[in-house]
Design a binder for these strands. Structure first.
Lengths: 124, 124, 124, 124
DNA sequence: GTGGTCTAGACCACT
DNA sequence: GTGGTCTAGACCACG
C-alpha cells in the first residue's frame, strides 16, 4: 500500500504523509477508513514504529486523520476538503517552475503542450 | 548581487547555487566572468566562508564554473548550454505537479490559464 | 442517560465518571438510586464492559457509589456532600485560568462579564 | 528557566510547550530570542534530547518559534499575537468550569469575588 | 556546535 | 490489541 525509499533525501515520515494524502485525494482512502496500526505498518514496511507514529501524529495535527487511543487511526471526515484546499495553494509553485523553464529557453507553447499531454495521459 | 534568506528551509549554499544559475541563464553572468572571491563574498553576505566554498565546489563539479588556483573562479563556457539542458529535464516535475493539482480537483483550464498569466506577467 | 464521545481525548471511563457526578449533583440521581448494570450499560452504549467496570470501581473508590455483590451499584448517601466538597477545590483552577487569560491580554471585565452571561444563560 | 514534573500526567513535552508559551506571553521571551539548544536543555533538565526536540518541533509547527538548522531556535515575531489569539478561545472553558461550580452549589458571587481577588493578587 | 531523522527497546493508559 | 510517551544512542546535513 505504501512504497518507501529509505535512500531518498525526503524523510521517511514525510514520504508516508505524502502518500497517505495522495491516497485520500484519489478517493482510495475515504473518510472513516481505519488505517493500518502503527506496529503493523512498521513491520510491513520494516520501519521503526516511532517513524510511523510521527507520520500519523503529523497527519493528526493537520486534521487529515484522527486517532483514538487504544482503538486505531481513521481518515477524518474533513480530509478531502482540507487537502483540496491545500492543493490550490500550490499554484504559485507551479507558476515559478514554469517561469524558470521559460527563462532557460524552453518554449512557452512546449510547456503548455507538455502539461496538456500529461493530463490527457492521466485521464486514460 | 545575491540575496540570501538564512531562515529559509533551503540550505544557504543551495540558495547561492540557484541564484548563480539564474544569473547565468539570464545572461547577467556570461561565460568567462570572474566570480567574487570566497572571502569577499563571505563578508559581503556575512556568511561563513565554508558555505560559499561549498556552493562554488558544487558548481565546479557540475561544470558550471571552473576555478584557477591562486586566481579565482570563472563562469564556464558551457554553462548556459548545461543549464538549459538541465532545465528541460524539469518538465516531468512540472507535469507531476499539474497532475497532483488536477487530482485534487483544480480545473485543468484554471491551471493552464494561471501559467499563461504568470508568464505574461514575466514578460513585462 | 449517558452520552459518550469515543473520539474525545478524554478516556471513555472518565467521561462516564464526569457525567455520573453531574447527574448526582443535579439531583437527577439521588442517594440510593440503583445504577444500570455493567452489562446492560455496556450494550446500551456499545462500550466494552471493562470500561464501565473501571468507571464504577473508581466511583466506588471515591465513595460516590457503593456496590452490593450480586445485587448492583447504588448512589452513596454521602455522594452529594462529597461532590460539593470536591467542587469548591476547583476554585484555584478557575483562578489560574483567569490569570492566564488576563496575562494574554484579555480584559478582566470581559472575563467577568462572560462568566456572568454564561451563568445567566444556565438559569433559563 | 523551566520546571518539569516527570510524575505529572501531562506529558513532559507538553509541559515544556505550556511553559514556553507562558514565558512568551509574559514578555520574558520576546520575539527573536534564541532558545536554549536541544542538547543543552536536555542535560539541564536531565531529559532526553528527543523529548525537547518534540516540544520544539510542535512549537515550530504552531508558528510560535522557528528553527534554523545548524543555528538554533528563535521566538517567532508572530508568537505573541498567535498566543493571544489562542487565549481568547479559552473563554468557553472558563465558562464551563464556572457553571460546574455553580451546579455544585458554590455561590455565583463567591466565584466572581474569588476571580477578582486572584487577579488583584496578580497585579501586585 | 546546531537542528533533524531514525532505530531499538521500554513502559503506560485505554479498550 | 491499540495509540502515546520516553530513553538511549546513533547518524546526517548545515554553518
Amino acid at each position: 500500500m505504501f512504497r518507501i525509499d529509505p535512500l531518498s533525501r525526503q524523510p521517511v515520515y514525510e514520504q508516508l504523509i505524502d502518500q497517505m494524502e495522495k491516497l485520500v485525494i484519489a478517493g482510495i482512502l475515504p473518510p472513516g477508513t481505519q488505517l493500518p496500526s502503527v506496529r503493523g505498518l512498521s513491520v510491513e514496511l520494516s520501519i521503526n514504529p516511532n517513524t510511523i507514529q510521527k507520520a500519523y501524529s503529523e497527519l493528526d495535527g493537520k486534521g487529515i486523520i484522527y486517532s483514538v487511543s487504544g482503538v486505531g487511526c481513521f481518515i477524518s471526515p474533513d480530509a478531502p476538503a482540507l487537502l483540496k484546499e491545500h492543493a490550490r495553494g500550490k499554484l504559485p509553485q507551479l507558476g515559478a517552475l514554469a517561469t524558470e523553464l521559460v527563462s532557460a529557453g524552453v518554449d512557452e507553447e512546449e510547456i503548455l503542450a507538455y502539461i496538456r499531454d500529461t493530463l490527457k495521459e492521466r485521464r486514460k
